[in-house]
Each structure stands twice: as C-alpha cells, then as structure tokens.
Design a protein around this nucleic acid. Structure first.
Lengths: 193, 193
DNA sequence: GTTAGATGTATGCGGTGTTCACATTCAAGG
DNA sequence: CCTTGAATGTGAACACCGCATACATCTAAC
C-alpha cells in the first residue's frame, strides 16, 4: 500500500495528494498555483502534468469535488424541501457555502468550465435535480423552469455579491437573515394593480 | 496639444491611452496584462506605473468607467421605471451588459474592489440609487431594502450564470426572454396555503 | 537659462504555466 | 530471475507576468 508521503522516487498517490493539497490552499486564501501545490507535495514543478494535462483539468477536479461537497451540505440533516421556508434554507446553505469557501466556489461557478469533465457534469446535475424537485414540490402550480431560474439566480447573485463585498453583513447569521428576507420579500410582494 | 500617438519621448496622454487600450482588450477576449497594454501603447513595460500605482488601480479605473457605461445604458432611451415590466427591463439591460462585456463586468463586480477609488464608489452609488428609486416606485408597499436585495441578486445571479455558461440560451433575445420570465414567475407565484 | 519635477526607459527579481529530454521505478512476460 | 516497456518523477528551459529600482529625457516655472 503506497503511502501519501514521498519516501521514494515515486510518490504513491500523487494525483490525490495534489487535489487535497490544492483544496487545502483554496480553503485559506485565494491563490493556488500548480508550482506551489507541487512544492507543498514535495515534488517537482513538472510532476503534476503527469496527472493533469493542464491547470484547467486540476481546477475541474477540484470543482467537481466542491459540487459534491455542496450537494452533501444541502442534503445533510435536512428533509427534502416542501415549504417556502425550507426552500429558503436551501438558498441560505448555498450562500453560506460560497462565503465559507469562496475560492472553491469561484472554481465551481465562476468560469466557463471548459469542455466538461464527466464527474463534474454529474455532480452539477445532482444539484440541479435537487433544486428542480424542491421547486416543483413547493410551487406545484408555478412554471418550474422559470421558478428554478429565478431561485438559482437569486441565491447565486446574493452569494456572488456578498463574496465580492458588493453587499456586506456583520456576520454569517446576518447574511442568512438577509437571504431569507429577500426571499420572502419577493415571494409575498404584490405588484400594484 | 499633445497627440495620442508617440512621436516623441513623452507620450502626451498616456494615462488615457492606457485606459482605452486596456478597455479595448477587455472588449474582445478575457485577458489583459499591464505589459501587453504598454506594448500596444508603444511604451515600455514600466511606463504605466507612472500613472497607476499597481494593476488594481488600472482595474479600478476601468471598473469605474464600466459602471458609468452601465448607468448610461440603463437610463438612456428610458423613462424611470414605474411598472414591474419596466423594472424587468432594467434587469434585462443589466444582464445584456454583462454578456456583451463580460471581462469588464467581472472587473466591475467580480472582485473585492479593494480600498475604494472615489470615482468608483460614486459610479456605483449612482446605480444603487437607480435601483432603489425604481424599487420604491414600482413596489411602494414592499420593504424597499429587501426587494432591492432580491432584485439585484436575481439579475446579478442570472448575469453571472449566463456569463459562465451555467445557463445557456441560443441568442441574446432568448436570454432577455428568460430574464423576463424568471422575473414574472417569481412575482406572480403564490405560495400554497 | 537653469533647474526641479514629471514622465519614459532599461534592467532585473521572483513568480507563473507549460514543455522537453532524461531518470527512475514498477509490473508484466519470457 | 531478468528484461523490458510503460508509468511516473526530475531538471532545465521558455515565455510570460507584476513590480521595483536606477537612470534618461523632456517640460515648465522661476
């Protein structure tokens, strides 16, 4: 069984080590570079290219992992959303994830994600399904496509705006409160006759 | 009157030339680098640093210009929004801007925008006001803060998602239609009793 | 006119992604 | 068991980047 540390010429499981190392860098502070990841993994700058054709491929692997993490967070300790309030909590979870792991979130949603990696599309599809079923359950009479569009757009926009400091809140609890408030505001407002 | 082309040791108006050159690069294709801008302006790589302390400062100037452009687009040929449909058109304009000038849009909204440049905050404030008055005019009875949060979040999220290909549409007209559809879907949906 | 400040240049440092030739190791077949 | 080929690592290099520092040149104000 090959170990994770490099006690010989060959690393053992460099691919996994690169991913966890890069993920660790993403968690604390923006930047991550292939060279820095290689350095921290105790390997030469060219070694990562044996496992990922280029930087985008590594990013894609990280993004896929991030999508799975997000899905897990949104489903853990929660029954499928069946009320507007529970739907709002999905949004709160989405925004919270973005603010706790902004660099990863950017990798997941903030680029054109190239030409799909299979695990990535699959992880994204799981989240899409989660949203779609929640929407149709909570609003059986509305247009599910348009409502999902609006719901995703709303929480994604809030996530980005908080992440980039265009909106601010004193604490993550306040962020959550504002997400809920915007959600109910838009749900219960009546256009004037 | 100094010309824009470099016919002598001094450029004439390098600061403006750098901004327009960089803006031109942003318009077509993502990247822009200080060195490339300097190259295209026919000037040495270090020259820009006489006019901008660092890259962020140039980006801030570009972002400010972008914010003014966005404001102009949102107000040109339009009366102040007084109906939900007109409010939706503001959102359509916002998303359309993002898709026509994605690299600039990212500079405007996709980073922490550091420590404010004065022209930048001012340009941003103008847009905030535009949104706030539109919201209070269209929904005099709703909570204006929460509704503005939701409205901005919605259109910003849609803009980002289309920009990063998480959502797709055949043409910009289709994007506009989907923005309107999500807007009305969320406005007229009734939470089940 | 001289001189001081503004503006441009040349050069260099440390960083990046990526490639290429080469080294080492592992795993399979004779 | 030994050979051999594929997988995986190394080292050096290229072209780019942001940025700093020392120096050159021009302009404007006294």
């Amino acid at each position: 069984m090959p170990s994770t540390t490099k006690d010989s010429y060959h690393h053992g499981d460099l691919r996994a080590a690169l991913i966890t190392t890069a993920m660790g860098m993403l968690e604390q502070g923006e930047s991550f570079s292939i060279r820095a990841v290689a350095r921290e993994a105790g390997v030469s700058p060219a070694a990562p290219y044996r496992h990922f054709p280029d930087r985008d491929a590594l990013e894609s692997a990280l993004a896929a992992q991030g999508l799975r993490d997000l899905y897990d967070e949104l489903t853990r300790d929660r029954t499928p959303a069946s009320t507007p309030a529970e739907l709002a909590e999905l949004g709160v979870g989405y925004v919270d994830f973005a603010l706790r792991r902004p660099a990863l979130f950017r990798l997941m949603f903030g680029n054109e994600c190239d030409h799909e990696s299979e695990e990535r599309v699959q992880a994204a599809a799981a989240i899409h399904d989660l949203l779609a079923t929640a929407i149709t359950t909570v609003f059986p009479e509305g247009d599910p496509i348009d409502l999902a569009l609006a719901g995703w757009g709303l929480v994604h926009g809030l996530a980005c705006l908080y992440m980039d400091r265009k909106l601010t809140a004193p604490s993550s609890d306040d962020v959550a409160a504002q997400v809920r408030a915007s959600f109910t505001a838009v749900l219960y407002v009546r256009p004037p006759a």
